[in-house]
Design a protein around this nucleic acid. Sequence first.
RNA 1: GGCGUGGUAGCUCAGCCGGUUAGAGCGUCGGAUUCAUAAUCCGGAGGUCGAGAGUUCAAGUCUCUCCCACGCUACCA
Length: 712
Amino acid sequence: MMKKRYLVTAALPYANGPLHIGHLAGAYLPADIYVRYLRLMGKDVVFVCGSDEHGAAITVRARKDGVTPREIVDTYHTILRDTFQKIGIGFDIYHRTSAPLHHETSQDFFRTLLVNGQFDEKESDQYYDETAGQFLADRYITGTCPVCANLDAYGDQCEKCGSTLSPTQLINPRSTLSGATPVLRPTTHWYLKLDEHETWLREWINTGVAGGKQLHDPAAWKNHVIGQCNSWLEQGLQPRAMTRDLEWGVDVPPELPGAKGKKLYVWLDAPIGYISATKQWALDRGVNWELYWKNDDTALIHFIGKDNIVFHCLIFPAILKAHGEFILPVNVPANQFLNLEGNKISTSKNWAVWVHEYVNDLPGREDELRYNMIKNMPEQRDSEFTWKGFQESANTELVNNLAGFIHRVMVLTHKNYTGVVPAFDSSREFKSGWNAEEITTCDAELHRLHEKLDELGAEIERFNFREALRILMEISSAGNALLQFNEPWKAAKDDPELVKVALNLGLQYVAVLSVAMRPFLPFAAARLRQMLNLSPLDDHREWLDTLNDLAEGNPVLRPNHALNAAEHLFSRVPDDVIEAQIAKLQAAAQANQQAAPPSHPLVKETISYDDFAKLDIRTGTIIEAGRVEKADKLLRLTVDLGFEKRTIVSGIALHYQPEDIIGRQVIVLANLAPRTMRGIESQGMILMAEDAKGRLSFVRPEAAWPDGWAVK
RNA sequence: GGCGUGGUAGCUCAGCCGGUUAGAGCGUCGGAUUCAUAAUCCGGAGGUCGAGAGUUCAAGUCUCUCCCACGCUACCA
């Protein structure tokens, strides 16, 4: 499905931290390869990205560091922008969501949705800090994680166990602004009626048809992308709040009643960044941005990691459709996750390879990292980065195979022909590099190169970057074999014609590689162009031209063209560099672990004896225990209080087996209001001790004790 | 508990709208070679395709059950 125009987006990185290799392998590298290829094919393509600079995490961070949010985002925006540039991610524009143009664009979008009747205004209860006098963003509330019992989980997420949370799930919530216990207060927000979009989204995802038009081929989408979307659609889409009570973000259009203090939520902020970035790019060039967003001849493609699938495949498309004028993405080739040395990459545990540190520690080795990332790209499933693997791929494949081949052709040409591309008799036969048994001619081999280059491009178009890279290396291997089979170093004396053909063709391989390498290894490709004394690639259909030349049997490098001096394109990565990186990784993780000892929860606000006396706590004995259907964490207990038996549902199933706890004496909060969980009424609560790791332990009298008596 | 994705050679991964002896790279073993950064080329070994059952003339490839990993989701007073 070739289109006239391409708009390629890469997920906006959040501007409160630097970039790690997982980000690179997940979204930016595949996007960059794809875009570089399209440019070399002469396509009209715009590649946009930018920093996502709003939200509570940034204000929390600013408060902690004692600086303004502006300072935080300025710092990281600069780091991110420079890192992308240094590792060779060639955005056409790297914008930022704090730009006024972005604020205007987002607000206009909001207004249009409002006019189109896409919102419901609804009141809901949100946590409010009475001391600070404001509503609390999820990030401003901390408390005990209900999943892993981490004492410092945020209202939106527990960083220890990674669970997604909502503030009301937190046990013992506290405001990070004042330390006070927040209270629930009603507030009004604008909800996008996502449920009304469910039907067309389901059809669009599964058939590619929307509004009666075939917009894409679902077979071209990755399994896990469609799978996850359907998983969500299955559960039914709910209206989603598009605004929040935040202090740092895009204002809800101020002319609207009730807009005061409210900001657009990420859903209507970050992805609109793609649009505002395009606008800015177009403005800078006097181009019409709408061609890229509102025209059916444009292919919109989002490169993201798998954590962003639902957002880019369901919510953002719903928003675009709700607006009415925008096109939908033709594909969302999300990658899975990259693990690091056997563990998940974790920012909070400092288990990561930071790209800005990499370019500093291993200067001039940008392509080596890119190569390994592509070779192990998590295209269909999670994959793994190891420093040992990095060293191996760099040394065996880039140094030995690729750089080695190029160097030997160059050196032989300099020895035999003083660095000038030799002319040769085109009828002369020789052994093919693709098969030692096959006798071939230069013309036939140029056609074979054409096939390979064409195939390579097709794999890129299908987002099969690993396979594309494999074909690139296959060309290099065939080049090595060409030399091996024809042995031009031997033939110089008795068969000079053979030497001419073999080296000429070898040089054609190298010239083709100088183009084909560019999407993957842009720095080395530039060095190689220089070495070959060819003009630098400027992304104007050089790939297409090369294909055309080869198809017609024309050499890419003409006879008598003078080459520059032979140089090694890559150098070995020595052991000590790798060892240093491994040591650094482990040291950082360890330091992080030591720096963050488990903190005890703050003591809650003082209460009177009367408050305590309201609690009726009794001894009891578990006489029955069983699992609760369809619940991982719940046990249904029957507890004997001596004077009566109670049914109590308790969230201890992960810590105790039912058969092990029958007969166990426990302490019961006996006058807690009954509550129904999973269809069972719980008449009380078992008191448990809990440690920093979330382990639970029964609390009980130190020796057998009669049931039903008070604990005071 | 529900949903989704994955579980294929020592390692990293392809293949999966069923169809000849299951593939690649790296590693390993043997051989050739020396123009080239101890590089290169050729060849071999290595997999009962997570487990079990079923459909079929034929199943990594379809169905069911189970196990494991990852993600989302429910339960936690």
